[in-house]
Write a protein that binds this DNA or RNA. Sequence first.
DNA 1: TGGCTTTGTGTATACGCTTACTTAATCCTA
DNA 2: TAGGATTAAGTAAGCGTATACACAAAGCCA
Lengths: 340, 340
Amino acid sequence: MSVTIKDVAKLADVAPSTVSRVIANNPRISEKTKRKVKEAMDYLGYHPNFNARSLANRSTQAIGLVMPSSADKAFQNPFFPEVIRGISTIAHEQEYALYMSTGNTEDEIFEGVVRMVQGRRVDGIVMLYSRVDDRIMCYLQEQKFPFTVIGKPFKNAESITHIDNDNFKAAQEMTEYLISLGHERIGFVGGNLNLVVTIDRLLGYEKAIRNAGLPYKDEYIVHEEFLKEGGQEAVKELLALKEPPSALLVIDDVMSFGVLSTLNELGVSVPDDISLLSFNNVMLSELSSPSLTSVDINIFKLGYEAAKGLLECINTPDKPAKRVVVPFELVKRQTCSSVK
Amino acid sequence: MSVTIKDVAKLADVAPSTVSRVIANNPRISEKTKRKVKEAMDYLGYHPNFNARSLANRSTQAIGLVMPSSADKAFQNPFFPEVIRGISTIAHEQEYALYMSTGNTEDEIFEGVVRMVQGRRVDGIVMLYSRVDDRIMCYLQEQKFPFTVIGKPFKNAESITHIDNDNFKAAQEMTEYLISLGHERIGFVGGNLNLVVTIDRLLGYEKAIRNAGLPYKDEYIVHEEFLKEGGQEAVKELLALKEPPSALLVIDDVMSFGVLSTLNELGVSVPDDISLLSFNNVMLSELSSPSLTSVDINIFKLGYEAAKGLLECINTPDKPAKRVVVPFELVKRQTCSSVK
DNA sequence: TGGCTTTGTGTATACGCTTACTTAATCCTA
DNA sequence: TAGGATTAAGTAAGCGTATACACAAAGCCA
């Protein structure tokens, strides 16, 4: 059917193994033979069959991506494309391809990962999120399969290479910033509580609140999905309070978009009536009106480093796990102002 | 190392072929044996090796995605994540995985595709764009490799299954809409001219202009990259004209964002001074201020149908090529108004 | 009861490549 | 110039699965 190593060998009048060695650029093959074989390859338009190679080799030159929900949900948040951009950059440099499993429910995703791993479809995995007691992460550890995590693993963080922002510190500083603007009633709009990033930021928020001697009120803490709808829900809850917050720390820009649109509908002005400080600084966060004041967590770099770390894991398996902390930076735009 | 079919065979006290048949659910195996083998598989935690399977099978259960530029550029435009969402949905339904090649230059991308195809890394390919005289498309046709195209193939459209909007009609109708609002100087901000979508929309625009008896002016036509920066460039050019347009038909929302931001910098008000009608209706297009009036081209469905078509190509190779036209719809928001 | 089909399972080979082991040829060195 | 060292290429055995073919057992009918 397609051209194989044997065809090339026949044409070049050498053994198949020699062709294989030419492909691998084995130094034990003379320049002359190499040239001869290469000519034959070109002439026939030979390309190695990847499956055969992987099988013989036990390597696939592909890395798997695991998202918290199925791609079709996750891609609603620009965070993921952006992380993948970073991953893709490294992958390309090292000639790895990206492999995305699909699946809707948690079970399906888990099964997809098992297939990736057991089926040796990929050489390693980047987890694009970190969740409390995550089955997949446990499984990968059990299997000793190379993987890295974006975010802080809930357990065994020392033994898992992961790439993270210092979310605790970020949230603390941002809350302090809001406090410095005179806000005393600060709401926290978090994502799902089983995501470690939510927890870390919530703790940072709490720390700042307590440090400042402000009351830490449960009703100011709301958790919703990482989507626009989540933001909309959150606002409704918070504004229904008898003493609604004067500032909101929102864990994700897309949620902030939702917050913004709902506030707009309700006729609440940002930042005059309520300030908004958001996280992620997604590509489009400057577009909303008012444009979002947001913490740039350097999503691209998170992905880039995660892929880089993964390739290190793959290439030098006994290298100790490491933690890479990607710096963050507040980008001030229009949604924060001091209390009047 | 990992559990193979042989291990299962040994434990279940049958031949490896029997195990293989159990996996394939071959009716010639007795229920009793099936049960016995399945127990052994469960006990050992057996999972088929995908590479071995693919090799024996000549199928990979993976579909390849080809983007116009490398993932790390393409993902800057929400169009691509959204298409992939659609693709991913079908892929998941049929247990296919997605495979993304990486590469920066055109050559690298081409090489990536060749490797995907020759290396049998995927069973078929979805081209996420359509370009004039595209090398990759030619190659795939030559190789008779299953693929579908999002957009209209420049050549041989009849013999290639493709999913498209009626871009000609869309652009024509939209231009007519602007004309109906009283605009007579309408600019066209296109993407790269070697993209078929640009051409089609430009032709539709021209048709409407000529039908209305308006002058078709070259200086009103600008082509830039499908990015924010492209939109910014475009505006600068158009506003430098002695008689700048009073309305702009912009081929992509992200470009529109650029247009908007530049107009804002220049103190030009939208829609009072200039109207903007955009394409794609990307998820965030309602967020800009003013929010974009944009043509919803149903990106998700483009992806969904493309994947569906591809799987048909793969499963029934001699099925004739088809063209799927995805409907569009104007979503009116705040960037269009009638001429004062 | 012999010969025929049907049913269930095993044997052996192929898929295309890698690589440990072997062999053949060439080159030194004493 | 014999014998060891070096270099270059070939042989063959996998990698884990699928499947054409072979074969044995069982069932059927005359």
